[in-house]
């Protein structure tokens, strides 16, 4: 019994380590013994550089954590505006037929356009400042959040609305106590997808025109042909992405507790 549990534990720790180690070893071998080494740094070099950039500036002014925070601030600004606007548009489209009839054709026109395609237009419209970036990030998240919220608002159980009215709820009370809660899981799904597309949009925007942020770290690495710097940027993005996804899951657990069967 005890032995098998130790074996199990070893399995859950060892096997994942095998995956990572294998990748690092292959990487290291490729760099050391093939011509790829001319282009690619070793894992150790990347790690050293990563640690170095934690305390030393990349480019002129900012350290790696500062670049990350700058990108994060941009994402959160655009994402929050996109969420609020997306939820309002989605719910009003799903609940009010006339609004649906007015807004939907225009929305359908915007929907299939990939978020990054707005970058050039945003730059022409707003220059290369923060407004342009916020707009690009907004467009990245907005569409997903509207699509999901709209689906949720259309799927509200009409019988439950009837129940609420029969128990004496006003239209406003029925909205806040029935429509909104039953949309929450949909809204959340939309926000999760939206956050990752916003994160993508900020990188693209920073890569096209910016002087700071992780996207800039990567593109600056390309400009000075510094592969290690590019990899530092990519790893920073992965870590940040993981943290954001974990945060969203945590929020979902709290807000959608009523859907869980256990305990």
């Amino acid at each position: 019994m005890k032995k098998s549990s130790i074996k199990q534990k070893a399995g859950t720790i060892l096997l994942p380590a095998v995956g990572f180690v294998a990748i690092l070893v292959i990487w290291w071998l490729l760099v050391s013994f093939t011509r790829i080494g001319l282009l690619l740094p070793t894992p150790l070099e990347v790690l050293k550089r990563f640690i170095y950039f934690l305390g030393n500036p990349i480019g002129k002014a900012f350290t790696l954590p500062m670049h990350l925070l700058i990108s994060l601030r941009r994402v959160l600004t655009g994402f929050c505006i996109a969420s609020v606007a997306g939820i309002i548009v989605g719910i009003s489209m799903g609940r009010f037929k006339p609004i649906e009839a007015i807004v939907r054709p225009i929305f359908e026109l915007v929907r299939p356009i990939p978020g990054v395609a707005w970058i050039p237009l945003a730059i022409v419209w707003f220059g290369i400042g923060e407004t342009a970036k916020t707009f690009i990030i907004f467009m990245g998240g907005f569409v997903n959040i509207v699509v999901n919220t709209y689906a949720g608002a259309r799927h509200v159980d009409e019988r439950l609305m009837g129940v609420a009215y029969m128990l004496g709820a006003s239209k406003i009370q029925a909205f806040f106590r029935v429509v909104l809660p039953s949309c929450v899981p949909y809204i959340f799904a939309g926000m999760q997808v939206g956050l990752s597309t916003c994160w993508m949009a900020v990188l693209a925007a920073e890569m096209v025109s910016s002087f700071e942020g992780v996207g800039w770290v990567i593109i600056a690495g390309q400009d000075i042909n510094d592969m290690a710097q590019i990899f530092v940027g990519i790893i920073a993005i992965a870590v940040m992405g993981l943290l954001l996804a974990a945060f969203m899951r945590f929020m979902e657990r709290i807000l959608c507790r009523w859907r869980e069967r256990g305990a």
């Binding site: 159980d157 019988r159 009837g162 129940v163 029969m166 029935v178 809660p181 039953s182 009523w258 859907r259």
Partner: peptide, 19 residues
């Protein structure tokens, strides 16, 4: 509809998000 007339349904029709 009026709160003066209550109803118990065939399917439960509870508000799943409320305890």
């Amino acid at each position: 509809p009026s709160p003066k007339r209550g109803m118990v349904y065939q399917t439960t029709n509870l508000f799943m998000w409320y305890n």
